[in-house]
Amino acid sequence: MSTTTLPPDGFNAAPKLADVLPPRKERGRIGMFIYRHPTIAVGGFMVSLFVLMAIFAPLLWTVDPTALAPARRTRPPSAQWWFGTDMLGRDVYSRVVYGARISLIVGFATAIISAVIGLTIGLISGFIRAVDAVVMRVMDGLMSIPSILLAIAMMALTRASVENVIIALVIADVPRVARLVRGVVLTLREQPYVEAAVAAGTRTPMIIWKHILPNTLAPVTVQATFFCASAMISEATLSFIGAGTPPIIPSWGNIMAEGRALWQVKPYIVFFPAIFLSITVLSVNLLGDGLRDALDPRMAKRI
């Protein structure tokens, strides 16, 4: 080949091509996040709104939600009683705002506790074959009972309290998390980086801690948000049929249960807690969907 430095006839430039798509808009960090993950942004914003509402309930122009006032029973919504009053004269607005506390506590507590327990069981049975067979059959057994029936049975055997509602819902949810985690663990165990760690002499507890656990957190977090939403619905259902939160504590299920009798004449007593419950559950589910798309693209395609 000749040692050309410059071609005798000079350089010929390729023709310039126009872009066929408009360039990407410049966005700030927050703008970029909203653009990338709109569902997380919307869901997260709404969930935080409800959390703030629950925490600062006393400051949000509420009155004592349990204060009885027989003189002003079943008033329709007005400037004084935004959501009206119920059959005992209690302010429905205050009750709904305070009721958010119960829903969110039950939802978050159930999600976090069942995720932690389920994660532990799932990790152990995913790694120890002998335990696996026994534990998973127990989990299958628990899963074969409809969760709401299991909760009703639990509540019938114990005193009605928020703690017991949470325990009942956790028992129903743990097998689902455990199954999920076990499945993830079994796939992760076959991953080359886990095999490389075994070959590098890493001990099993360390493999679980460093290689398996961090990679199960994403799917468990996603699952936990869905459990949170379903726990809120279950709590409301249990309270509605009188097998959940004690009637003395305002919870959305209780408010609806009490308003049930007057549904045809005073629909607003049921309407407001119902709409709050729906919007909260929707927000949590939106957040969960967004997290799933962001954290686990494979799962998003499968479902």
């Binding site: 080359p192 980086y193 490389a196 760690a197 460093k210 290689h211 961090p214």
Partner: peptide, 11 residues
Amino acid sequence: VVFQDPFSSLN
């Protein structure tokens, strides 16, 4: 060991 898939062989 060095495995085939450079994307799944590193945590």
